[in-house]
């Protein structure tokens, strides 16, 4: 099993953090364009899902899969979006993404007065902690 990469977006759609572990392709476009494209896609999927849903209440998007990879999505009520691409064998990982938010983002970014919110993350502490956390996951 593999984890390909992770994206963190804020509510305005800025990509705060991107890291890749096992990515096999390179989209032939600059990174910032890829972030915009992905965020645009997530935004459309969200509106698509709320309107298409046959029942009411919580209608959040969880994941999609193609024949090669699976994209997992988790959004906090403050609009922070966590996106992780893994291979197909991985089940629902909402809890894992919540852990990344709760144990790593909140601990090392929100509680760090030197890290400005809504700006791309520079903290190396955050990077190492996230890397450790992901590498310890059972499906890494």
């Amino acid at each position: 099993m593999t984890v390909y990469n992770i994206y963190i977006f804020n509510r305005e759609g800025t990509c705060l953090y991107y890291y890749e572990w096992n990515r096999r392709t390179d989209c032939n476009m600059p990174k910032y364009e890829e972030f915009k494209l992905l965020h645009g896609m997530l935004f459309s999927i969200k509106s698509f899902v709320t309107r298409l849903s046959p029942i009411d209440g919580k209608n959040s998007f969880i994941s999609y899969r193609t024949n090669k990879y699976k994209l997992h999505f988790y959004e906090t009520p403050t609009g922070l979006k966590f996106v992780m691409n893994t291979d197909l064998a991985v089940e629902n990982i909402q809890d894992t993404l919540h852990d990344i938010y709760n144990k790593i983002y909140v601990e090392y970014i929100v509680k760090n007065p030197l890290c400005k919110l809504n700006e791309p993350i520079q903290s190396s502490l955050f990077r190492t902690k996230l890397d450790e956390h992901v590498k310890s996951l059972p499906f890494y």
Partner: peptide, 19 residues
């Protein structure tokens, strides 16, 4: 286009909480 793996197809299954 955004696939991390080569030669990926498009969306096959999209999962949400209600459908």
């Amino acid at each position: 286009k955004l696939s991390p793996e080569q030669k990926s197809s498009g969306i096959q299954v999209l999962e949400t909480e209600s459908f």
